[in-house]
Design a protein around this nucleic acid. Structure first.
Lengths: 217, 217
DNA sequence: TTCCATAGTGAGTGATTACTCACTTTACAA
DNA sequence: TTGTAAAGTGAGTAATCACTCACTATGGAA
């Protein structure tokens, strides 16, 4: 999967959302709701059609198969979640000395992804569920993660290790600990305990503190 | 859900495994394999019967419905994963001063659960997938977690906070950060990157170090 | 040997599945 | 106004679904 494909996906996704027929939009909306509620496999196309208020045939006019409908929903999300997770401008900031340290980087990152998850929990639930069973999605996810997140992240961690700001753990361990703490927070906040009385700002501060102290020399 | 139910479950589970008919064992084995591969909803009872080498009717002789078969697999696992996650004897150790600090407790905990996950990845994948869609399972999980893990864990964290070993974050934050770091490690190790060339002992040490430094005063 | 409960069977059930296709409606350019 | 491509329809289809039931096989107690 080349860089071009990824860009095309984003463009396609962006453009498509404006080119959508009203009925097509209703279909996507209904599908997202039901996939999140009962899962892809146990949602039937007839149910989707009913909730969308369209004929069942209309679904297959726009999507050749049920699976194609799933991928139309899920594929753009994989890109949108992974890519800005560690977007290019973060790395630029770092090397242009616009960012003072790993902590400020972390703060940008976590705030940025917090807002994104907040607005896309439903869609991300579907991704999380379905990635497990579709190899195509796994490979898509892996290559996007490798090319857009991992490479930049590695550079950055090395940079801060050389500056003596963080421990000399293997780069992969630093990344693993950082990301799994952040994702652990987001999953707890929005999926496991969304109804708990969260003080988001303080909890984010504690999470950043925890990572920084954990990695500090 | 009372303590009795939980104990009964464990006993039932334990006893059942010995009381199982050969064919019933084959059914469970086949079901576990296929649920993990393709998911519960997209595995048919006829496929299970075929792989188990039994007639489809035999499945329904032992399990009234397909869902009952799923629960027979998943329910004991929820208990087995959650309960020893923070079992009674850990807490005893702590208050009997048999354990010197949070770090040793952590080390016991992480080693213990590491071995368990290693031997039960397949089953835990199914649990992870299906808990999302079955409220009965969610409630079962929540009550077991609350009664067997959370209460003991809260006591212990308070204890170490009073001794001045760990930060005065809200107890829930300490627990969340600890557990999500551990689970983050286990998920990365066994589900996301099981084929990576892991140095388990060192990675466990780093994970413990990370948590300790992150929480230390 | 006889009896009986339990285990196992597989053809059969109606409901539901993803998907098709011949058709109608809509929107817009010529 | 007419022509045409795309959007939308819903009855129809073969396949598959979870589950039933009348039946046979098995193994141990009386």
């Amino acid at each position: 999967m080349s860089d071009n494909d990824i860009v095309n996906d984003l463009l396609q996704a962006g453009e498509l959302e404006d080119q959508l027929t009203p009925k097509q939009r209703q279909i996507l909306q209904a599908a997202v709701e039901m996939f999140a509620e009962k899962g892809y496999a146990s949602t039937s196309t007839s149910e989707i059609a009913k909730r969308a208020g369209v004929a069942e045939g209309t679904i297959f006019r726009h999507y050749k198969t049920k699976k194609e409908l799933l991928f139309a929903i899920v594929s753009p999300m994989i890109t949108k979640f992974a890519v800005p997770f560690f977007a290019q401008h973060f790395v630029k900031q770092v090397f242009d000395r616009e960012v003072s340290g790993y902590e400020e980087l972390l703060r940008n990152l976590i705030h940025n992804r917090f807002e994104f998850v907040k607005e896309n929990v439903t869609l991300l639930k579907i991704v999380l569920q379905e990635v497990a069973f579709h190899e195509e999605l796994q490979e898509r996810y892996k290559s996007i993660f490798r090319e857009n997140v991992l490479e930049s992240f590695e550079e950055t961690v090395k940079h801060f290790q050389e500056k003596g700001q963080i421990k000399d753990y293997p780069v992969h361990s630093v990344i693993r600990l950082t990301i799994s703490t952040i994702i652990g927070f987001l999953v707890t906040r929005f999926i496991i305990m969304p109804d708990y009385d969260w003080d988001d700002e303080k909890e984010i501060d504690r999470t950043i503190d925890f990572i920084m102290n954990g990695l500090e020399k």
